[in-house]
């Protein structure tokens, strides 16, 4: 694990008013930025809320399923109609340029690194 980024397990949501499920995520980093994938099945596009405030990224979504009248759940593994997960970003990430794509219940976030934080090759001079 890389110590330079704080995109790590930080699930202590500040506004934990309602109980929510923690969606599983994948996070990986390359030279130009960080990619985050989150599984949010059952969330339509208009019920997904993404927020970047200061250095906090919040992912929230509401599950909306088609349920016929009079249905009673007999077995439920997805027991709450809500997902929420909070991450702390680090300073070298450019939060102004976050791009997001949401398809088939999978959210893909791309957070680029700020220009000055991109890797530079340092020449080694021989004395």
């Amino acid at each position: 694990m890389n110590d330079q980024t704080d995109v790590a397990r930080n699930d202590e949501s500040k506004a934990a008013a309602q109980a929510a499920l923690t969606p599983p995520v994948d996070v990986f980093e390359d030279a130009t930025g960080i990619t985050l994938l989150a599984d949010l099945p059952g969330v339509p596009k208009d019920a997904l809320h993404l927020q970047v405030e200061a250095e906090t990224l919040t992912i929230e979504g509401e599950v909306r399923l088609e349920v016929p009248e009079g249905m009673e759940a007999t077995h439920a593994e997805v027991g709450l109609p809500r997902y929420r997960r909070v991450f702390t970003l680090s300073r070298e990430l450019d939060t102004e340029k976050v791009s997001a794509e949401f398809r088939n219940g999978v959210l893909t976030l791309r957070i680029p690194k700020a220009e000055h934080a991109q890797p530079r090759r340092i020449e080694v001079e021989v004395a």
């Binding site: 599984d39 349920v67 016929p68 009079g70 759940a73 007999t74 439920a76 593994e77 088939n104 219940g105």
Partner: peptide, 20 residues
């Protein structure tokens, strides 16, 4: 995938949460 199963008077409903 995670599954929810429900019974309605006229049908059985199965939801498989299989994103992506």
């Amino acid at each position: 995938p995670a599954m929810n199963v429900g019974g309605a008077p006229e049908s059985v409903e199965i939801y498989a949460f299989a994103p992506g």
